[in-house]
Design a protein around this nucleic acid. Structure first.
Lengths: 122, 122
DNA sequence: TTTTAGCTTTACGTTTACGTAAACGTAATA
DNA sequence: TATTACGTTTACGTAAACGTAAAGCTAAAA
């Protein structure tokens, strides 16, 4: 059998609580299989979790992350579906590029603030 | 008198509701003066608002934005205060740099997803 | 003068992303 | 055998960031 993870395995690895993982499942973000009653996470589930958390660190909502993740998984689908996906992907890329600009602005400002503070230390 | 703005002036310019501006004031993020009973925003207030919203677009909480903004404004203060500020500024810079990495990762992933989708269109 | 437009405060409602506790099952360990 | 550790579901609670509605003041326009 391929590697499977328990709920607390993943919780510890990614520093979240089991509650969080159950919540993500409730929201349809991850769908681990069951070993009897208990959840069993595949490495694909683990990857999904990593992507969700990456999205969170960028300030995305869970829904937005779900949208992006479903883009990765979209190999199948009709031509029309795929084209819609491509549009959404490009939209999201645009958003991230904007965010990158804001981030640079803020970093510049912070460096200036630091400089002023250092100068104030004379 | 220097330029002053009404609550709806700023709301329109930054595409937020007056409620949002009152909320920020309630949280101590902006402190417009009063023209009798009504709020009157200076260009400094306007700048603070711009910084708050920039922080929001980066996924910062209002409290985090407030922290950063207070860094900009910190010209005065004791040496110890300033040194504490500098540490916080560097911390925040570190966070933003990490965020920048995540962002690049996600952009790369999205470009790959786009590519796969395009290839699936054969 | 009455209506309209915009401002105010007060206060309860809403969504997101979980936290926390109750009540229970199971399996290994003391 | 009883405790400990881990899992489950169900359900109410919570913080953040506003939305929305009520009730009232004020000035300009119809």
């Amino acid at each position: 059998m391929s590697t499977q993870y328990s709920i607390s395995d993943l919780a510890k690895e990614f520093d979240v609580t089991p509650r969080t993982l159950r919540f993500y499942e409730e929201k349809g973000l991850i769908s681990p299989s069951r070993d009897g009653q208990t959840r069993s996470y595949s490495s694909a589930d683990r990857t999904r979790l990593r992507l969700i958390l990456r999205g969170k660190r960028l300030g995305l909502t869970l829904e937005e992350s779900a949208e992006i993740i479903n883009m990765y998984d979209a190999g199948a689908g009709s031509k029309k579906q795929i084209q819609t996906l491509i549009e959404k992907i490009r939209e999201k890329q645009q958003q991230l590029l904007e965010q990158q600009k804001e981030l640079k602005l803020m970093l510049t400002d912070l460096r200036n603030a630091e400089k002023r503070c250092l100068e104030a230390l004379d």
